[in-house]
Amino acid sequence: MKISIQINASPYQHQAADSAWHFIQAALVAGHQIYRVFFYHDGIYNALRDSRPPGDERDIVKRWSALQAEHGIDLVVCVSSAQRRGLLEQSVARKVGGYEAALADGFRIAGLGLLMEAIIDADRHICFGS
């Protein structure tokens, strides 16, 4: 089955990012395809490169980057959610004088159109977090 994922909550305050990550692991093991993971609302904080949790804790951002590196899963951060919260794409940051290296490896920033494409093309679209 083609499954699309949406994450609406920030990584450490809510369980959404953890639940989604575990769900994706289980889905991949079961032979399903993860069409895309779309980060919306405060979910964009999952893509902050400079997140540095204590060494004995799970590193949620790095875990997403690893998921992308290992399985090639498309990690898309909503552009308007991200800009509102200060996470800028390199080219935009350069233009407006913002921080250019904010986005963690494996993520890309794009519009809501990619969310719609995922909802339409996937067999299931599942939201985590509110």
């Binding site: 609406n8 919306y40 609302h41 308007s80 959610s81 509102r84 809501l112 159109g113 969310l115 719609m116 494409e117 909802i119 339409i120 509110s130």
Partner: peptide, 18 residues
């Protein structure tokens, strides 16, 4: 801000003829 961002998804869905 979520309610406003949420309605944005609905508008986008309509723009995609859903």
């Amino acid at each position: 801000i979520q309610t406003q961002e949420f309605i944005d998804i609905a508008l986008m869905a309509a723009a995609f003829d859903q």
